[in-house]
Structure formats: structure tokens, C-alpha cells
């Protein structure tokens, strides 16, 4: 089965496989890709002074996939030749394991890096995904951005970070 470019699931992530899928998705006779950038987000053992034991992620999956599609379309609007793959893992994830893998392919490295950075910033802003942190003395839902895909200022901030 071909590797989907945008996916959510409980199995461990493989950034290499995703990078290959992103490349393959646009490989044409004249194979114009000169760069693939990947980002892998890992579960850390510390957060806000707490010793983290593991995280449990959940997603509203159909909307999360639509959010990834939106992010890929936004990136394509800004970097016409870049293509994105986004895989997010859900369920229990141990320290040091990957929670997200992003790959972007492009003719040149600048666009590949920028699209990759943009994607992780936007995932954190608008993907309906949540992590619950289990630490030595309890557990807590982590709550970050108020998800609003129409928020132009948030999108602008993601673009600014991508191009910094």
C-alpha cells in the first residue's frame, strides 16, 4: 500500500518513509527536486519543571486530516514548488519517541526548510490534536492555541517563523 502523505495513526512514525513518499509523489520524468527537509517532533522528559513519564495524544481525526490538507494548500500557495507530508501519531507515546513527522520536497533547500517549518507551526495552531502529559505526581491536558484557521494574525506569525 502506498504511504499516504497526510495521516494520523497509532503506529510509530518513520520520517524516512514519509520523505521518500513526498519525493515519489511528484517525481516526474525531469525529477526537479533538489531538497527534502524533514522535521521530527519528539516527546521530551521534562516540561514546565515536571518530570514527564509519557504522553497520550488524541485527535478529532477527520478534522485533523482536513487541517493537514489546509496546511498543505496554504504552503503550496506560498511556496508553489514545495510539497508536504505530515504524519501525526496518537495514543500513548514514550519519552524519546516521535509524535509528529513532516517532510517537504522542493527544487531548492530554502523552500523545503520554510515549508517544513511553516507546517509544524500551523499544526500547533489549528490541528485538532491534544496531548495529555503524565508526570510523576499526576496528569494534565496541555492546552495551547485556540484553533481558528481563519485567524490571519496566527497564519502571518507562522509565515514569519517559517521565513526567519
Amino acid at each position: 500500500m502506498p504511504c499516504p502523505l497526510l495521516a494520523i495513526g497509532a503506529i510509530p512514525l518513520d520520517a524516512g518513509m514519509l520523505a521518500a513518499a513526498v519525493q515519489a509523489a511528484a517525481r516526474t520524468a525531469d525529477a526537479s527536486d533538489g531538497a527534502v527537509a524533514t522535521f521530527v517532533g519528539l516527546v521530551r522528559d521534562r516540561n514546565l519543571g515536571r518530570t514527564v513519564q509519557y504522553l497520550v495524544y488524541e485527535a478529532y481525526e477527520p478534522l485533523a486530516i482536513r487541517s493537514f490538507e489546509r496546511i498543505a494548500a496554504e504552503a503550496a500557495e506560498r511556496w508553489a514548488s514545495a510539497r508536504l507530508g505530515i504524519h501525526h501519531r496518537i495514543g500513548r507515546i514514550e519519552i524519546g519517541e516521535a509524535s509528529i513527522a513532516i517532510a517537504s520536497a522542493s527544487p531548492h533547500r530554502g523552500e523545503a526548510f520554510a515549508a517544513c517549518r511553516y507546517a509544524i507551526e500551523r499544526v500547533k495552531q489549528i490541528a485538532p490534536i491534544w496531548k495529555k502529559e503524565y508526570f510523576d505526581t499526576g496528569d494534565v491536558w496541555i492546552e495551547g492555541a485556540v484553533a481558528d484557521p481563519q485567524d490571519a494574525a496566527a497564519r502571518q506569525e507562522a509565515l514569519r517563523r517559517a521565513c526567519a
Partner: peptide, 24 residues
């Protein structure tokens, strides 16, 4: 699909409420 709080609901719709997100 993301919707505004003033969006009208139809019979049979699925309406989800989402606290601030923390993916990545």
C-alpha cells in the same frame, strides 16, 4: 469542518467542541 459559534445547525449534524489544541 471548523464552524463559527453563530453557524446554524441542521438536524442530524455532528457538532464538535474543541478545547485549545496541543498537537505537534
Amino acid at each position: 469542518d471548523y464552524a463559527r459559534m453563530n453557524a446554524a445547525i441542521q438536524d442530524g449534524d455532528e457538532v464538535a467542541f474543541l478545547p485549545p489544541v496541543s498537537g505537534g
